[in-house]
Design a binder for these strands. Structure first.
Lengths: 343, 343
DNA sequence: TTCTCTACTGTGAACGCTCACAGAAGCATG
DNA sequence: CATGCTTCTGTGAGCGTTCACAGTAGAGAA
């Protein structure tokens, strides 16, 4: 147990070793490590060479102990676990954030809060200062963890506009309403006049906004809003399937459907197929997200692309800025209509 | 910047504060924190009360600095990113590991190594000792990162038997061969005699083993192995679709297909449907994984359940044991046949 | 009583780093 | 030649913990 255990690792070089190797003091090495201000080019070079020779890597624990920063951030998901399993958008977002953070050399701690116990544990962990900030995915309203973190003054950036939190919390979101408008306009431009909708959950901002966009365009086109054409969903595939069935029963004359997520749209496609409706000939179907599911389905889905790359990049940028002392910010990014086979 | 910045957080209580509050010394508090051996019940109680009163949470950085442990582990995914986006199994595994680690109060760092640069950065990060061990998902052979970590003596547990790494690396895997045998036996028991297969990638142990199980049962049943009935896949949905098309072209008399993953099976279902074959009447289809995709497809897939809960739990258990000094171990877990609509 | 053993407690040092401060050197200005 | 300024460098202290060690108190044995 002392010295090197079987197959053990040698004691890694410290800033001291580098200093000795470079013929300078600890302070100088530290300055080089932290931006190199007030360091002569000669010393700069000597230190860098010594770092390369020794294979030195900074000990983040020692650094954190004194700076009070942890130099790591948390990715907190408080969605119910089913959505996490089912929805590839989370993976895309997660990957984007990981990459964006990697560029800043900041590790990402994954925190999945399903049960209440987990929530409490994670909240304690975060408020104890073990992460400098939190990327939050929690679209439903009234999330107690989010509120607790906000109250504790933890830098926070939400994905999508959070409902119920004060306006003081940063968020990055796609322009849901505008995307919905684009899609419904597109469906109308195909000559469809009985355009239905399967909504997202209406306790989420995305769900509300996409429905609002639909209503606006229907009204602008001089069409009457028909309640029978709008059925509720919860973003899950199953709810899309059920929604389409209900839609067909309530309003069999429907000739197009705007579905508030690709995952639900998959369910809609399945239900339409079962009912013998051809897509897009009989019913045109438009999704939302441009998730991998949109390409995997057949026919491939026309959909609204959410700029996930930019969303993740912006979330990280805003969070790091906030950690650096800047004020909270809201960023809304444009969406894009992607035409494929289903319309 | 000194004292409390605007809206800032107060300096959290230290072990010192707790000691003073409890009327004992730092050492005693530390002992309570680390298991409570050689501490009188009275002191024990006083310390716990003081911790509760002060809201003390241990400073992990200070602890890590002296112990040399980071008390965190990495979840490293070196799969190509497409699979990560597409395959819900990763999410299930990730969630399982997160939960299992949470029970030990160990945070999980997510590391996604797509490009070569990312690989190098992550390898350096890990070998620098910033995590105590690594949960590895990298099913393809010849993974340079994995080999590097093994060589550096980093505790490592792979998900699935790693090809090409020395036998010194721990792994946890489902019994792929046995699962395949069960499925093919099941298909034969339905009276099918022209049983095809879409394999997984044959540079992965899972791919190899599932094919081996198929061959064994075909042979045991006194049937002849027919090359035309076996087509290669790579676990992706698209490859399942292509595989089924090829299978129908090569051996139109096929009356059952064992597909090496549920995701591919979704593709197979789509291709069969397009070709006008009814499932299961004309062709029975069996998948592998019991991923969420199996329930989402229609008809719902008969499949082989991989015990993901136990896999993740065991991975964490083995890894922690190894960090604690135990020798590497291999764990193979039984699978289970789940009958649904597709057979 | 005296000694030994066990159960428990306190104290200094150290982990590797950053930060504030004190100084040194070079150069221009009075 | 003193003075100030700028640029650079080294040093000591300290971040919050654990660990090894030294010690104390009480119980039981000699």
């Amino acid at each position: 147990m002392t010295m090197n255990a079987a197959g053990g690792r040698r004691r890694p070089p410290t800033i001291h070793d580098v200093a000795r190797e470079a013929g300078v003091s600890r302070g100088t090495v530290s300055r080089v490590l932290n931006g190199g201000h007030y360091v002569s080019p000669a010393a700069q070079e000597a230190v860098n060479a010594a770092i390369r020779r020794t294979g030195y890597v900074v000990n983040r624990h020692a650094r954190s102990l004194i700076t009070g920063r942890s130099d790591s951030i948390g990715f907190l998901l408080t969605e119910p676990q089913e959505r996490f399993f089912e929805d590839p958008n989370f993976n895309v977002l997660l990957r984007g954030c990981t990459q964006a953070l990697a560029a800043h050399d900041v590790p990402l701690l994954l925190m999945l809060a399903g049960t209440g116990d987990e929530r409490r544990r994670i909240a304690r962990y975060i408020t104890a200062g073990h992460v400098d900030g939190v990327l939050l995915v929690s679209s439903h309203s009234g999330d107690p963890v989010a509120e607790q973190l906000r109250a504790a003054g933890v830098p926070l950036v939400a994905c999508g506009k959070p409902i119920g939190l004060g306006s003081k919390v940063s968020y990055v979101a796609a322009d849901d309403r505008d995307g919905a408008r684009d899609m419904v306009r597109h469906l109308l431009s195909l000559g469809r006049r009985r355009v239905g909708m399967v909504t997202g959950p209406l306790d989420t901002p995305g769900g509300v906004e996409r429905l609002a966009g639909y209503r606006e365009v229907i009204a602008d086109a001089g069409l009457e809003f028909d309640e029978r054409l709008v059925v509720p969903g919860d973003y899950s595939r199953a709810s899309g399937e059920a929604g389409a069935e209900r839609l067909l029963a309530q309003a069999p004359e429907v000739d197009a459907v705007f579905v508030a997520s690709d995952l639900m749209a998959q369910g809609v496609l399945a239900a339409l197929q079962r009912a013998g409706r051809r897509v897009p000939q009989d019913v045109a179907v438009g999704g939302f997200d441009d998730s991998p599911a949109a390409l995997a389905s057949s026919p491939q889905l026309t959909t609204i692309r959410q700029p996930w790359d930019r969303i993740s990049t912006e979330m990280v940028r805003v969070l790091l800025a906030q950690i650096g002392g800047e004020a909270p910010a809201a960023v809304i990014l444009p969406t894009e209509l992607v035409k494929r086979e289903s319309t």
